[in-house]
Computed example of a mutant assay.
Amino acid sequence: MADDSTKTIRATFETREAADLAVEHLVQQHGVSRPDIFVQSASDRNTAGAAPSGGDASHDEGARHDAPLEGEIEVSADVASSQVAAVQRSLGDAGALHVSSR
């Protein structure tokens, strides 16, 4: 009998760039539909991450100061129980600071 249950995977990232990469991994490598992936602040504060990256980092003048760097970003999705280990590895490869499932 196959296990059809799902688990919610949550991962936290230091930068928006790493969170976006994680979303791409979930979609392209694991077939998770984009509407089933949630990206939000890992705390109650509005944030673009804990460190500048990508468009937040200006190479000419240093980091931009118009985006709040108030904390980590959380990516979550429901995945099949059989995918949990592979998804956790993939999120780690994308730069997750912490990955959990329930």
Rank of each mutant, 00 (worst) to 15 (best):
Thr8Trp: 00
Ala42Thr: 00
Glu70Pro: 00
Val27Cys: 01
Ala51Pro: 03
Asp56Ala: 07
Asn46Ile: 06
Asp78Ser: 15
Ala96His: 09
Glu61Ser: 06
Pro52Met: 05
Asp44Ala: 12
Asp36Ser: 10
Asp3Thr: 13
Gly54Ser: 10
Pro35Val: 07
Gly49Lys: 03
His30Thr: 11
Ala80Trp: 03
Arg45Trp: 09
Ala80Phe: 02
Ala18Gln: 14
Ala85Lys: 10
Leu97Pro: 15
Gly31Lys: 15
His98Lys: 01
Ala50Glu: 04
Ala48Tyr: 09
Gly95Asp: 02
Ser43Ala: 03
Val84Trp: 01
Gly71Trp: 05
Pro52Ala: 06
Asp44Tyr: 14
Leu21Lys: 04
Thr12Gly: 05
Asp60Leu: 13
Ala50Lys: 09
Val84Met: 01
Ala80Arg: 05
Arg10Ala: 15
Asp60Gln: 13
Ala94Pro: 15
His25Cys: 10
Ser90Gly: 14
Phe13Ile: 02
Ser53Gly: 06
Asp3Ser: 08
Asp66Asn: 06
Ser81Ile: 05
Thr47Asn: 08
Val79Thr: 05
Ser76Asp: 00
Ala96Arg: 08
Gly54Pro: 12
Glu72Ser: 00
Glu74Ser: 03
Gln28Pro: 02
His25Glu: 11
Thr8Asp: 04
Arg34Lys: 02
Ser33Cys: 06
His65Met: 08
Ala85Asn: 11
Ser53Asn: 09
Asp36Ile: 05
Asp66Met: 05
Leu91Ile: 04
Leu26Ser: 00
Thr15Ser: 14
Glu70Ser: 07
Val75Gln: 04
Gly31Tyr: 14
Ala42Ser: 01
Arg102Tyr: 14
His30Pro: 12
Glu70Ala: 07
Thr47Leu: 13
Ser76Lys: 04
Ser43Gln: 07
Ala57Ser: 11
Asp4Glu: 10
Gly55Tyr: 15
Ala11Lys: 03
Gly92Leu: 04
Val32Cys: 10
Val23Asp: 02
Ser41Asn: 01
Ser100Asp: 13
Asp20Cys: 10
Asp56Phe: 07
Glu24Trp: 08
Glu74Gln: 05
Met1Pro: 11
Gly31Cys: 12
Val23His: 02
Thr6Asn: 14
Ser33Asp: 07
Thr6Trp: 09
Asp78Ala: 14
Met1Gly: 14
